[in-house]
């Protein structure tokens, strides 16, 4: 991909991060760190890989995205709004009574949301079912599932890992957001992304790796998976909890509590500053 394409994705990711910070500030949620760590993966998918029609959200051959990681709803919602699945103003009532954007994903309420969510460890199994159903119906749809590294503790995920491989699901592509953090604390026991990937390999999955904050790396890894479908494939995306907002990146206790107005303000200033640097950098190059 050329520099302009990368630049465009980086601009989009900054805008998405700002919306995520605003949503979390308004809703007093505590999922800032988890949401920020997946933004670049989601931007790469939705703006470069997935084939969707926001004006026709139930188009039968659309690619499906299943968000398994429970704490990253705000990032998905901000992206769906930016894609045009629903009005951006819906973001500001996230988690409120009667809101279209529930604290847990609800495909009946929200256009663009493909599967229910909320509990850790359930998304991959549902993604398997969608992928198997698409294959049975001769659909060309591809199914992507984003899991958090924290939820990989759940035994059910490993049942689903085995199922995907048993059915040789060539239209199933998983991503692990490897931020090494569960609810703000370091995860122990996985070792490196390579060591975790080896577990998937042992189940017969094809494993690839990427820098989860580098669009070149992400898009080329996704393209590599899609171009040679050979059964289920997983991308281990190395990410940073709270990426893009210094106070969230630090991973200290304050990053888990809902941000107050001052922290929201600082985070937005920081992201705006990053935007200016991005534009200056691009001008220097040209």
């Amino acid at each position: 991909m050329d520099r302009n394409e990368v630049l465009e994705l980086e601009r989009t990711a900054l805008e998405v991060r700002k919306d995520v910070v605003r949503m979390i500030g308004l809703s007093r949620a505590h999922s800032l760190g988890s949401s920020l760590s997946v933004v670049d993966i989601l931007v790469a998918l939705y703006f470069s890989i997935l084939s969707t029609r926001p004006w026709d959200p139930k188009w039968p051959d659309r690619d499906r995205f299943v968000l398994s990681k429970p704490n990253a709803c705000p990032a998905l919602y901000a992206i769906l709004a930016r894609k045009g699945f629903f009005d951006r103003d819906e973001l500001w009532s996230y988690r409120r009574l009667g809101a279209m954007l529930q604290g847990t994903l609800d495909p009946r309420r929200t256009a663009g949301v493909e599967a229910p969510g909320g509990g850790p460890g359930l998304g991959l199994g549902i993604a398997n079912g969608i992928a198997l159903g698409a294959a049975m119906g001769q659909s060309q749809a591809r199914v992507f599932c984003l899991m958090g590294d924290g939820e990989l503790n759940e035994g059910t995920i490993w049942e689903s890992v085995a199922t995907a491989s048993f059915h040789r699901l060539k239209n199933l592509f998983a991503v692990v957001d490897f931020n090494g953090t569960r609810m703000g604390s370091p995860i122990e026991g996985y070792g490196s992304p390579e060591a975790l990937g080896a577990r998937f390999e042992a189940f017969g999955w094809k494993v690839s790796h990427a820098d989860g904050h580098c669009f070149k790396s992400l898009v080329s890894a996704f393209s590599g998976m899609i171009d040679n479908p050979a059964g289920p494939a997983v991308l281990m995306a190395k990410t940073q909890w709270g990426r893009g907002v210094a106070s969230a990146e630090s991973g200290d206790a304050s990053a888990l509590t809902p941000p107050n107005r001052e922290r929201v303000e600082n985070a937005l200033l920081e992201l705006e500053q990053a935007g200016k640097s991005l534009e200056e950098g691009s001008n220097d190059d040209s």
Binding site: P60, R64, P107, E114, A115, P116, L122, L124, G125, I126, A127, N128, G129, I130, A131, L132, G133, A134, M136, G137, S139, A141, T156, E159, S160, A162, T163
Partner: peptide
């Protein structure tokens, strides 16, 4: 694999 069976069923249902 009862839990996974139910998840698979949910996904199949979501895909029609």
């Amino acid at each position: 694999s009862e839990r996974d069976t139910v998840l698979l069923a949910a996904g199949l249902s979501l895909s029609g």
